[in-house]
Design a protein around this nucleic acid. Structure first.
Lengths: 264, 264
DNA sequence: TTTACATGTCCATTTATCGGACATACATGG
DNA sequence: CCATGTATGTCCGATAAATGGACATGTAAA
């Protein structure tokens, strides 16, 4: 248990790496923040080191600590920097219109997600007018890459090596999730690779919802994001699923064009 | 010239401080990113150090470099972390509804901004249905604190020491802005302190627009954000301005309540 | 060719990081 | 009341990393 490497790449630059590892670990935790002990367990770093780095990060405003709960959380200055970083990566802005429209047309919840290292981050959630919204994801939610619908769509376009590497590196994290079914997971991944899009039926976290997802590709064919939609299992027949797929494909293509053709 | 201290607080923890300074410097620059030389001039750090730290930040995905322009910019992984940081600071989410409504009621552009150290960061822009949108600000824009409308409203609620410190520390940055009028600036600040809200008439950057702003306070009375609205100078009479102020006050109070009373 | 500018790299010196070990605080329970 | 477990705070010598002056390269203008 514990002691994963978060980066997966470089090992240079000590304290900065430690800081990034810690911030990522906090981001992976609950929205209420994390206790120091939890960070020790999840990051695998020595406790005094975490303590020291967190002090530095707090003095920089990148980490805050709730007075009551003593939980560490991402700080306001990091959020402020986040706004600047986000506005230079226009994917969410470009996706806003087509995905809001799609959610309305399908009358279903639509998600937009990107990969960040070994994680999947939800960067958009578009609700329909229906009272019933299937899904508990929220913008900013971060989980192990592979555990959400959109990941399946991206697996279908990632090089096989990369898929294997991600799954292998994240397997211990998958197993920490209650009700994880490894055989079912591998079947779902294989199906995604075969279909070229992501499907999601009664696997992993949720036994009553299904979903479909399509990747957004850069000009080289590499998946940079994915959009997915969820519904209650059995509520859509094949024609309904096809309508979802068509809508997702159209939106993905529209977003890809806006990103790579309209750019400068 | 150049060589400002960005932090203003701590001097411990070498490389991490350097990294944060650099990221902030990049965020302060144009949306297209910054050349290494520009970062040298604006950050005041030695060039080899910047070069090295940027390499590290690039290996972490926190900084990217455009192949053509050779400009450094905030990276995708920093943006992803930004989503997580932002969703733990619910101000923008809470502000969405009241400020969209306000923009519609006033039929004017409404901004939401927060302070981050010596900078002001725009974290919300709410457009009316009018074809005429007065203002070039965008979400993620970062500038020296004191140069925008919302800062005036926050000055009115900051301790005098802090006001003086910010202005003194930023004065050289103000002067770098074309057309900066120091006397007019000080008059505007004094007026904000007297009124308790921010006004903005023909000063600083823009000679044709005016604005009004109100701070959002935490329970201790400390300003955590500000909302402002802009219009063409002379287009509003005193009654119109009063209507703006009332709307801003109401929205500020609503956001403050949602943040601090509804919270757990 | 010369001058100027932006960037890339080296490496001896300096300095901060590292983390095991120890200390504190506060529950719970026998 | 003390033993036990758990979460956190701090010290400090050994170690490893950051530092930045100096030099090198590539490129465009004079």
């Amino acid at each position: 248990m514990a002691s994963e490497k978060l980066s997966g790449l470089s090992d240079s630059a000590g304290s900065l790496n430690r800081a990034v590892t810690l911030l990522t670990t906090i981001a992976r935790g609950s929205r209420q923040g994390s206790l120091l002990t939890e960070l020790v367990a999840r990051s695998g770093l020595p406790r005094p080191t975490i303590h020291r780095v967190l002090d530095t990060l707090m003095s920089l405003g990148w980490v805050e600590r709730d007075a009551q709960s003593a939980r560490y959380n991402l700080g306001a200055d990091l959020a402020a920097l986040g706004y600047s970083a986000i506005c230079r990566h226009p994917i969410a802005r470009v996706a806003e219109t087509p995905l809001s429209r799609l959610a309305e047309n399908l009358d279903q919840l639509v998600y937009l997600g990107v990969r960040s290292g070994l994680d999947m981050v939800c960067i958009g959630r578009y609700e329909s007018r229906s009272q019933i919204q299937i899904g508990r994801g929220y913008v900013g939610m971060r989980g192990p890459f592979g555990m959400s619908l959109s990941c399946m769509a991206m697996f279908a376009h990632l090089p096989q090596d990369e898929v294997n590497h991600i799954i292998e590196a994240n397997l211990s994290r998958y197993h920490r999730i209650e009700g994880f079914d490894e055989a079912g997971f591998h079947r779902t991944v294989a199906e995604a690779l075969r279909n070229g899009y992501g499907t999601y039926d009664n696997i992993i976290l949720d036994r009553t919802t299904s979903g479909l997802a399509i990747a957004i590709l850069d000009p080289a064919g590499y998946p940079i994001a994915a959009i997915g939609t969820t519904f209650i299992t059995g509520w859509l027949d094949d024609a309904g699923k096809q309508r979802c797929l068509d809508g997702l494909r159209e939106a993905a293509s529209e977003i890809g064009h806006a990103l790579f053709i309209a750019e400068s």
